[in-house]
Design a protein around this nucleic acid. Structure first.
Lengths: 219, 219
DNA sequence: TAGATTGTTAATCGATTAACAATC
DNA sequence: TAGATTGTTAATCGATTAACAATC
C-alpha cells in the first residue's frame, strides 16, 4: 500500500496543466492585473466567472492548478493570485526572442511596446530580403538569415517568431530549430512541424477572423 | 413515431459546428489550399490527419459537418473540399472591416496584403489621437472616432477590429456595437463583453506567447 | 456564531477515438 | 473482384458542472 501511495505521489507532481485550463489562466491573469491596478484586494471565483463568462466551479478547478490557495469566505487575494498566475505563465521573467521577417507584421511586433513591457524582449530581427538588411527598427538592425545561428547563441534566444510569408514558414521554423530555439511563435496560417523538444504555438490571427466570419454567416 | 422523426429532422439542421471542429476547419482549409496549389487532386482523411497531427477519425468526423462528401477508396477531391471549406468559413466572400487604432498593430493590419487577398477588406481606420487624423495608410486616411457610425453605414462594415491600448478596448467595442457592426475582432488581451447578437473573437497574440512560455518552463 | 466561499469529489456532458459495415 | 477509404455508430476519454463538507 505504502508503495502504491509513493508511486501516486511520484507521478502526480509531473501534472500538466490541460490546454483549455492554460488558455483560461491567461484570461485570469489579465483580469486580475486589472483588478490589482484598480486597488481591488479580494476576488471570488464567482466574480471572476461573471467577468469571463464561466462558472465559479470552473474557476476554482482551474486555480487549483496554481501554487496558491484562496481563503474561505473571502476569496482570493488579488496580489497573491496575480503573482501565482505570473509565475505559472512565465510572465515574471524575461524571454529573449528573435523575429524572422521584417514585413508589416514583424515590424509591428518589434515596434509594439507592449511586448517589451511584458518581458518579451526582441533581441534580433532577420529577413531574407537583402534590401532590408541594415534597415533600422528602433535600436535593431535587420540582419541576414545566415546570422540566425549566431544571434540565437549571442542573445540566448528562447523563442523564434515566424513572421514571413506562408510558404516560407516551415523552412524558417527548421532554421530556428537548427539554431537551437526552444519555442516557436507562428504568425502564419500554415501548420508548422517541429521536433518533440520544441514547443510551437500558433497566433491564428487569420483563423480567428475565419471563425468569426463562420459565425457571422449564421445570422 | 412519425412525429418524433419530424421533430428530430426539424431540430437537426440548426446544427452548430462545435468550436474545436471550427478551429480545425481553418487548418484543413489552409492545408487543402496548399494541396490544390501543388496540383494534388485527391487527399485522404489519414493524409490530412498526418499533416495536422490528428487521427483520421477526427478528420472524417469534422468533414462530415461540411456540405461535401468524400469518395470511398479515393478520399476527398481537393478542389471540392477547398470550396466546401471556403463556403463554411465565409472565405468565398468579401467582408468589410473597420480598424480602430492606428498604432503599430493597426497599421500592420491595414498594410498587410494577406488580409485583402483573402477577402478581408479594411475600408476605414479610426484613432482617438487627433494628431493621427488625416494620416495616410495606403489609400486610407485615419479618421476621428466620431466618424465611426458614419463609416459603418457608408461601407456596410461587417467587422470592427479593436487595435487600441488595453484599457480602451471595452469602450471601443461599445462604440462599434452601437454603430451596428455584427462582429468584433479583439486584438487586445482584455476580455470583451458584447450583447448576444454580436460575435466576438480574440486574436490572443499575447496569450499565445504566454501559453508558449508556460510550456517552455517545464523544460 | 452564522454565513459565505473555498477545495474537492462525484455526476454530467461533450469531444475524440475505435471499429466496422457500406461502397466504389 | 479485392482492397482501400468513407461515413457513422458505439466506446472511451477528458473537461465542465453540480454539490457539499470543510473552514475562516
Amino acid at each position: 500500500m505504502a508503495i502504491v501511495d509513493t508511486v501516486k505521489f511520484m507521478t502526480n507532481p509531473a501534472r500538466v496543466v490541460p490546454s483549455p485550463v492554460l488558455k483560461r489562466l491567461t484570461d485570469y491573469y489579465t483580469t486580475v492585473q486589472g483588478l490589482t491596478a484598480e486597488g481591488v484586494e479580494w476576488v471570488s471565483s464567482s466574480r471572476l466567472a461573471d467577468v469571463l463568462g464561466l462558472t465559479s466551479s470552473t474557476v476554482r478547478q482551474d486555480l487549483s492548478h496554481l501554487d496558491f490557495a484562496g481563503v474561505s469566505k473571502r476569496g482570493y487575494r488579488t496580489s497573491g493570485l496575480e503573482k501565482a498566475l505570473a509565475c505559472a505563465l512565465g510572465a515574471d521573467r524575461i524571454w529573449n526572442m528573435l523575429v524572422v521577417g521584417a514585413g508589416n507584421l514583424g515590424r509591428a511586433l518589434v515596434l509594439h511596446p507592449e511586448f517589451r513591457r511584458r518581458g518579451f524582449m526582441i533581441r534580433a530581427v532577420c529577413d531574407s530580403d537583402v534590401f532590408k538588411t541594415g534597415l533600422k527598427l528602433r535600436t535593431l538592425e535587420v540582419q541576414r538569415m545566415n546570422q540566425i545561428p549566431q544571434a540565437v547563441k549571442e542573445h540566448a534566444i528562447d523563442i523564434g517568431v515566424i513572421a514571413v510569408p506562408e510558404d516560407a514558414a516551415q523552412g524558417v521554423a527548421d532554421l530556428l530549430v537548427e539554431a537551437g530555439v526552444k519555442g516557436l511563435l507562428n504568425l502564419t496560417p500554415t501548420h508548422i512541424t517541429a521536433p518533440e523538444g520544441v514547443a510551437v504555438t500558433d497566433a491564428r490571427i487569420l483563423a480567428s477572423l475565419q471563425e468569426l466570419t463562420h459565425t457571422l454567416m449564421g445570422k
